[in-house]
Amino acid sequence: MEAIVKASESKRIHPQKFTLWVAMGSIIMMFAGLTSAYIVKKNQSSWLEFDLPVVFGYSTAVILISSITIHLAAKSFKAREMARYRTLITVTAVLGLLFMGMQVMGFIDLEARNIALTGAKSNSAASFLLVITGLHMLHVLGGVIAILVIFIKAYSSRIKNYSSLPIDMIGTYWHFVDILWVYLFIFYNWIG
């Protein structure tokens, strides 16, 4: 079996990488469903127009930077520069958490402007923002947890791992949630 797997490795995409791509397609469908619902709802009566929290602009910058750091992390892993790799994945994870914190600040900002996200006073315009952004945050959190796993591996002296598969897959996923947020940001501002 080993021989068969090795032989096919060179020409075919790794099954787990492939699975990730299909999973990302699945996640796209979920957000497509939600943003379509957003559009349908917007065209009905009683839709509240309001300005997006300013902090969402900064969080966009943060997640874009984190994509660069994880890309560099993967490069240093392949160059076996492990110290640099460890720093870069740590920075990425911290940026991910910072991004999530900034999104929460955005929600607090809205509530402070008397735009209720939930509850009887809420308008579905704001609720949609909460649900879609919140779900996206959960996907970022998933990426942070995945980084945590390779982080533990990277600092453990017992485990020696030369396969770049995990970092490649996390990198792909991280870029994906990044692009997903950029899409949502554009959607909130100019499409929806």
Partner: peptide
């Protein structure tokens, strides 16, 4: 399934 169940899931979340 992979393309349609997530949409149901969004409906459930709302």
């Amino acid at each position: 399934g992979v393309l349609s169940f997530p949409v149901l899931f969004s409906g459930f979340i709302l």
